[in-house]
Design a protein around this nucleic acid. Structure first.
Lengths: 227, 227
DNA sequence: AGTCCGACTTGATTTCGATCAATCAAAACA
DNA sequence: TGTTTTGATTGATCGAAATCAAGTCGGACT
C-alpha cells in the first residue's frame, strides 16, 4: 500500500455506505472510523498474500480486488472478486490466523484497512459490530456456495447467462449495461479461461445477447433464463 | 426432526466439545445450553431446504449432514459436508434471511438446534459468542475457497490424493485408515461423479494407494503429494 | 444357505472447456 | 500521429470427467 492516511471527507462518505459500516450504530461507526486507515493500490499490487499472518481487515472503497489461490506450479484460481463497499471476507480472522488467499488490485483501488486486534476490541464492547461481521460473512459463505454449485452444475454459457441476468439493472425488459470490469476478470470470477468466456458470448449472440467492448445488450432476458 | 428434547448428559458432553461451544466462556455456554434442543434425523431426512426462512442454527453432534444446492432440473451439487462438532455454516443468518442450500442427513444423525433470534439475543449480550460465530464462519469461508480453487486447479486423482493426505492420521509414514463415510458421499464432497472417484482410486493404486471397502492403505505419502 | 438390494466398479462414448497458437482490436504512450 | 503493449477473439487440438450402460461385489434378511 503506497501511503496510509486518515480518511478524508470523501472516504468517510464511502465508508459510511459500505456493507459493513452502513448497518452499525453511530458509536460503532465512530469507533471504526477512528481506527480506519486509507490507502490506494496501483493496479496489480498485492494487498496481502496467502499464508501471511492476518492482522488487517480490509474494505474496498473503489476499484476491484481479485482474491485467488495459487497452485504449487503457479497457476491461479480466482475465488472472489470484491468491489466498492465490500468487506474482504477472506481476511476476517479475528484470532491470529493467516490469510487463506492472495488479494491483488485488479485496477487502481482505494482500500480502507482496520487493525484486526482493534476490531476485535471494539467487537468485544459493541455487539452490533460483531453481528455485522457475522452477517457479512454468512452472506459471503452463501456466495461461495453459489459459485461452487454453479461451477459444478452449469456450462460456461449458462454461467455467463446467469451472471448477465443477475447484473441486469432492470428485470424482464430488454436492457443494455456496461460490464463493471475487464472480461478477463469476469472470466476468472466465473472460473473460465478468457477464451471460454469469449466463446460463451459468441454463442449467446444467437440468444439475443450482443457485446461490444464492455457494453452488453440483452434482447430477451426470458430466453436467457431458459438457456 | 423426529422429536426434540433437552440435551441429556451425553449430548451436553458432545456439545461442550463442539467447535462453537468449546471456545466460549462458561456463562455463554450455559446460555446456549439453555436454548439447545436435540433431535435425531434418520438417514436421508432433510434438516432444512434452500429458500426456507432461516430461523435455526444447527450443530452436528453425530453423523454427517450433506449440504447441497439444486438445479432447476433436479441435479444436485454438494457444497459442504458437516460432521460431529461442526456448526452448519450456511444457516448462520442472524437477520431474517433464508437458507442458501438444502441440508440432508447422510446417515442417522444427532443434531442440536438453537433458535436464531435467541442466539442473536445472547450474542448481543455476550461478545464471545458473536466472535466465536465470526471465527467459525471465516474458517468455513476459507474451506469454501479451498474447495473452489481445488476444483478449478486439480484433476480428480489429485483432489482425491489431497483428501487422503489431509485425512491421514499420521504424517510422512505409510498408514491405513477408514473413510469416515460412503464413497458416494466423498465423491459429492470432492465435486465428482461416483464413477470418477472410483477411477481415481484405481489410478492411485499405481502410486501406492490400496482401497478395500472403506479401508484405505497409503504406501508412500510423499509420492502421493507429488501426483 | 440363498436371494435381494444398494453401493461400487468398469467400459464405451461424448461433451465441455483448457490449452496452444495466431490474429485482431484497442488503449496507452511518447 | 504512429508505435507499442495489452486485451480479446478465433481456430484447432487434446484431455478430463460426465454420462449411459452393464456388470460385480457385499451385506442384510428370511
Amino acid at each position: 500500500m503506497n501511503r496510509l492516511m486518515k480518511p478524508g471527507a470523501r472516504e468517510r462518505e464511502t465508508l459510511l455506505n459500505s456493507g459493513l459500516l452502513s448497518v452499525l450504530g453511530v458509536e460503532s461507526v465512530a469507533a471504526m472510523m477512528e481506527i480506519a486507515a486509507i490507502g490506494n493500490l496501483p493496479a496489480r499490487q498485492m494487498l496481502f498474500r496467502e499464508g501471511e499472518p492476518a492482522d488487517m481487515l480490509h474494505c474496498v472503497l473503489s476499484g476491484y480486488m481479485r482474491v485467488y489461490k495459487l497452485d504449487p506450479d503457479g497457476r491461479e484460481a480466482d475465488v472472489e472478486l470484491y468491489g466498492p463497499g465490500d468487506l474482504i471476507g477472506a481476511s476476517v480472522v479475528l484470532d491470529g490466523g493467516r490469510y487463506a488467499a492472495t488479494a491483488q488490485a485488479a485496477e487502481p483501488s482505494l482500500i480502507a484497512r482496520f487493525d484486526l486486534r482493534r476490531v476485535r476490541d471494539i467487537a468485544n464492547r459493541r455487539p452490533d459490530l460483531a453481528i455485522a461481521l457475522v452477517s457479512a460473512l454468512s452472506a459471503q459463505l452463501s456466495r461461495a456456495f453459489a459459485s461452487l454449485a454453479d461451477d459444478r452444475l452449469h456450462t460456461a454459457p449458462q454461467r455467463v447467462a446467469r451472471y448477465l441476468l443477475a447484473h441486469c439493472p432492470v428485470e424482464g425488459k430488454p436492457t443494455s449495461f456496461r460490464l463493471p470490469y475487464q472480461k478477463s476478470l469476469l472470466a476468472g470470477k466465473l472460473g473460465l479461461a478468457p477464451e471460454a468466456l469469449s466463446r460463451a458470448f459468441s454463442m449467446l449472440r444467437s440468444h439475443g445477447v450482443n457485446v461490444r467492448g464492455r457494453l452488453v445488450h440483452i434482447g430477451d432476458p426470458e430466453a436467457l433464463r431458459r438457456i
